[in-house]
Amino acid sequence: MTLKYLITGATGGLGQHVLNYFVENIPSCDFAAASSNPNNKKLFEHRGIAFRHVDYDDHQSLETGLRDVDNLLIISTSGASRSEQHARVITAAKTAGVKHVWYTSFVFGGFSDDSKTPVQQDHLFTERLLKESGLTFTSIREGIYAECFTFFLDWYPERTTVTLPGDGEIAFTRRAELGEATARIMIRGGYENQVVMFTAEETITAKEIVDIINETTGRQAKLKVTSREEYLGSSEVHDQRGKSKEYFQMIATLWDEIPSGALRTTHPLMREILGREPTTPRDAIQKLLTEDRDYVFIY
């Protein structure tokens, strides 16, 4: 029997929100959850949700898991092997005859393909593969999760000075709303062979976030913007958590393009798909800190 929708990464931070919308709005016979861990089968079937084992590193699971699927949601993976994993699943989707691939991409550079940020390079590579595959696809450049503002600022509750190698505008977007919008656009259909974007419609800077931290939690943190070289030279020495040099290099790489506007682009499509205004970055961050003044993003 043909499955209308298959949601990969259904236990992940974004995927679970996509799945929840399907559970609440679509007949259970029309969709299934997929995970790389076959032990998650019981977790889903306990909720009355069909399950398929789909491991991007396992050809056999891709061959069987993608069979007879109309709409496949490929939630991007993380790590050094991301490009190889995405190439593998796209090939499998084409072999299986998937009718429409929906891919969760990233927003560095807005709608341009000019970003040199390594994580965006992986997503641009995947988008090129989709375009060349002959598959019908929609690539959704998803806004930066508001929930991970602490990661972008490398902020933790004990920190009184937030040191960064730059500052700039970011359209932080609530992950739950991104998940809902992703589910809604899949159900609506259309947008064939397009790159679209989901973001909040306002932006916020690191300086403004530090002000929100202080206003909301009663702290007196301050922002120090320094050069990339000084940031990399001092961060590891002064860090209280034993983070590696590679960790701070990753943070610096993210900020290389932000001051020039790489995450400034906003778009109204998410508002159209949701049927309401997306939560602003300020309100989203304020809510997180009101609920937990020591909030830190957990991967």
Score class of each variant (00 low, 15 high):
87 A>R: 12
149 F>V: 08
174 R>M: 12
156 Y>S: 14
120 Q>W: 01
142 E>Q: 12
173 T>C: 06
110 G>V: 02
154 D>G: 14
155 W>L: 04
94 K>S: 04
179 G>D: 14
111 F>K: 13
151 F>W: 14
102 W>E: 06
147 E>Y: 07
92 A>C: 01
177 E>R: 07
124 L>A: 09
135 L>P: 01
177 E>T: 05
112 S>F: 06
155 W>S: 10
112 S>W: 01
111 F>E: 07
124 L>S: 09
153 L>M: 12
167 D>M: 02
118 P>C: 13
179 G>R: 11
88 R>I: 02
176 A>H: 06
115 S>F: 08
146 A>F: 10
162 V>S: 02
126 T>V: 11
165 P>E: 10
169 E>K: 14
107 V>T: 15
138 T>F: 12
152 F>R: 05
151 F>S: 07
90 I>H: 04
141 R>W: 08
87 A>D: 10
166 G>P: 14
176 A>L: 08
127 E>F: 03
144 I>K: 02
86 H>Q: 05
155 W>T: 00
92 A>N: 00
110 G>Q: 13
116 K>P: 00
153 L>G: 12
129 L>K: 12
135 L>K: 01
104 T>S: 14
121 Q>S: 06
133 S>Q: 11
141 R>E: 13
126 T>W: 08
180 E>L: 01
134 G>T: 03
177 E>G: 09
109 G>V: 07
129 L>I: 04
165 P>I: 05
143 G>I: 01
179 G>H: 13
177 E>K: 00
100 H>K: 11
86 H>R: 03
126 T>P: 08
125 F>D: 06
164 L>G: 13
87 A>P: 03
153 L>A: 07
155 W>H: 13
88 R>A: 15
135 L>H: 11
136 T>G: 02
104 T>I: 02
96 A>V: 00
147 E>Q: 14
164 L>K: 09
99 K>E: 15
108 F>E: 01
162 V>G: 13
118 P>Y: 14
95 T>L: 12
150 T>P: 08
106 F>V: 09
127 E>M: 04
169 E>Q: 13
92 A>F: 01
146 A>C: 05
95 T>H: 12
121 Q>R: 03
147 E>H: 12
163 T>M: 01
104 T>D: 13
123 H>C: 02
107 V>L: 12
144 I>C: 10
159 R>T: 00
94 K>P: 05
123 H>D: 01
129 L>R: 10
102 W>C: 09
125 F>M: 10
86 H>A: 05
133 S>G: 15
139 S>E: 05
100 H>L: 09
87 A>M: 11
95 T>D: 10
102 W>D: 07
96 A>C: 02
180 E>F: 09
173 T>N: 15
